[in-house]
Nucleic acid binder design. Structure first.
Lengths: 111, 111
DNA sequence: GTATTCTACTTAAGAATCTTAGGTATAAAA
DNA sequence: TTTTATACCTAAGATTCTTAAGTAGAATAC
């Protein structure tokens, strides 16, 4: 079983923003796949978490959507808005700081 | 403001177990302080999250409690039970794997 | 050729986790 | 003597995620 215990809680939003920042335009299903690929199955987003979050980020003006027809069906492509791009740096820094803090717990400097 | 955005969600339990594993017997307030110290204020546990979680872990047989009088007041000292000690290795490994996965998102190997 | 799997989206109910905000009380410091 | 620090507690509510179900086209397997 992939990890996905509880640790993922709280980092989903950062993951989405970072993926879109790196890969440009992506659709939801693609984000799931790419995250799974990039982490060697380490992280598997559930669709029940992903899609509502995409909608929320769109509502907050972080993401733009464009629905495109692919043959007989459709996909919803997401991109970062200007406002979304402005947040990339800070959310990544927060994540990095958080990891550093966790590592100070995992490998305490013998004080 | 310390980070404590959402990223902490899900890792509190691991933090508590690791702290008790490293420092042996600790009381709740002490865990808060020590986590703050060790992370240079990076992580601040709130008491509203900590105490209920300690009670839960006690209920699950992960922690033992001993209430001790300190002059005119008391403290509740927590230790890992035998069962709790058995979990230390796996919860730490989960955390490390999670961090590795996150780092593969933050610093993707150009595939 | 049809049954299954994969792609691709959706939502709703409920569980789990945490924040906020309050409370009690002793002890130390200002 | 007022404030701050220590030390515990809980309840209400927000947020985040899981679980589970549904729709439907496209590809693969049998």
């Amino acid at each position: 079983m992939a990890l996905n215990s509880n640790l993922l809680r709280g980092s989903l939003e950062t993951i989405i923003i970072k993926m879109l920042s790196d890969h440009g335009e992506m659709y939801g299903y693609e984000i799931c796949q790419k995250v799974k690929d990039q982490t060697n199955e380490g992280i598997s987003l559930t669709e029940g978490a992903l899609y509502p979050l995409l909608h929320k980020l769109e509502g907050k003006g972080i993401l733009d959507v464009e629905t495109r027809s692919i043959g007989n069906r459709y996909r919803k492509y997401y991109t970062l808005t200007k406002s979304g791009k402005k947040e990339v740096k800070s959310v990544i820094k927060e994540m990095e700081d958080y990891i550093k803090s966790i590592e100070l717990i995992l490998n305490p400097k013998i004080a």
